[in-house]
């Protein structure tokens, strides 16, 4: 086991933590926005898959990662639009619609993949990185944190930006009001429907981007069901972060680390069945839930459709 503490192992663990963590971070932040506004988005797994497929196909056909991301984000927004129409505008059960979006996302992307790529299984090339001067030359952390695709930096910057948005802008106030007491927001003259719709669409955008990252930069190829529950982990992250983006960031890289254990272990020459490693993140979620059970927080109006006049 002495191989565990080598530079190679740590480097690949951290590198993998970031690679696996960015999709979790993006979709976790997205889920946080929805939850803040009072919409429990169970469909995030489906939105990620839509983003992953569209992002991969986009990058493959346009030969541009940037366009791939854009198309992936757009696919997420489109999946979210279904949720907006059904849940926010028509006040349907958020859980039923969420499950439907996840199932539909799984089925549709698997089907698309089958008809388009299942014979060739094309791979994308290595994406360009944007090394940060000096920092990228540091041992271990250099390549893990400072020699990455711009989207990685953008995701981290977005976290910081969201801290500011939640705390210091009208958008932040409106989101919080929509989740805590929608009637109060309505009485203040702000449309709850609009606030929630935009929140859900942002969730779609971010989870679409997260999915696109997974397929383009993370793996370089699309596989059916490739998110493997990442969307649900994102929901847990948002739940435990209690409305604080920084906690999503922290949690995402923690979970990313446990997801990337497999590869790192293999690099270090330790042989543990992959299934055991695969259990790690989920076991961690359960453990975290048990330990911090009292501290998880969800807005009072979460999951409830808003009708004016119905109190």
């Amino acid at each position: 086991m002495e191989g565990l503490l080598t530079e190679v192992f740590l480097g690949s663990l951290l590198f993998g933590a970031v690679t696996a963590g960015v999709p979790l971070l993006l979709s976790g932040l997205g889920e946080q926005i929805s939850e803040k506004a009072g919409v429990l988005n169970i469909g995030i797994e489906g939105m990620m898959l839509m983003g992953a497929y569209a992002g991969f196909a986009g990058a493959y056909y346009t030969d541009s990662f940037t366009l791939g991301f854009l198309i992936g984000g757009l696919a997420g927004v489109m999946a979210a639009a279904v949720m907006v129409v059904l849940c926010v505008l028509l006040s349907m059960n958020q859980i039923v619609v969420g499950i439907a979006i996840t199932l539909g996302g799984e089925g549709l992307t698997a089907l698309l993949h089958h008809f388009q790529f299942s014979r060739s299984y094309p791979r994308l090339g290595r994406p360009e990185t944007l090394p940060v001067p000096w920092l990228s030359d540091l041992p271990i952390v250099g390549s893990a944190f400072f020699d990455r695709n711009p989207l990685v930096y953008a995701a981290v910057l977005l976290t910081v930006a969201l801290v500011w948005v939640f705390k210091r802008t009208h958008v932040g106030l409106n989101l919080q009001a929509a989740g805590d007491k929608p009637a109060a927001l309505d009485a203040a003259g702000v449309s709850v429907t609009l606030t929630r719709s935009l929140a859900v669409l942002s969730t779609g955008l971010l989870s679409g981007l997260g999915g696109a990252y997974l397929s383009t930069i993370g793996g370089g190829l699309f596989l059916p069901f490739m998110t493997g529950g990442a969307g649900f982990i994102a929901i847990v992250l948002a739940m435990l972060a209690r409305g604080k983006p920084m906690w999503v960031l922290f949690g995402a890289f923690m979970f990313g680390g446990s997801l990337s254990m497999t590869t790192a272990m293999q690099v270090a020459g330790v042989n543990i069945p992959t299934d055991v490693i695969q259990m790690l993140p989920f076991a961690m979620v359960i453990l975290v839930l048990i330990i911090f059970a009292r501290n998880s927080y969800l807005p009072p109006a979460l999951g409830n459709p808003y009708h004016r006049g119905a109190r």
């Binding site: 210091r168 106030l173 009001a177 007491k181 003259g189």
Partner: peptide, 21 residues
Amino acid sequence: LIPSLTILENLMLGSPWWRRC
């Protein structure tokens, strides 16, 4: 009123979103 916000924040609720908060 939203219990988790301050008095001023509650009063500001409803201003145009692009306005500086």
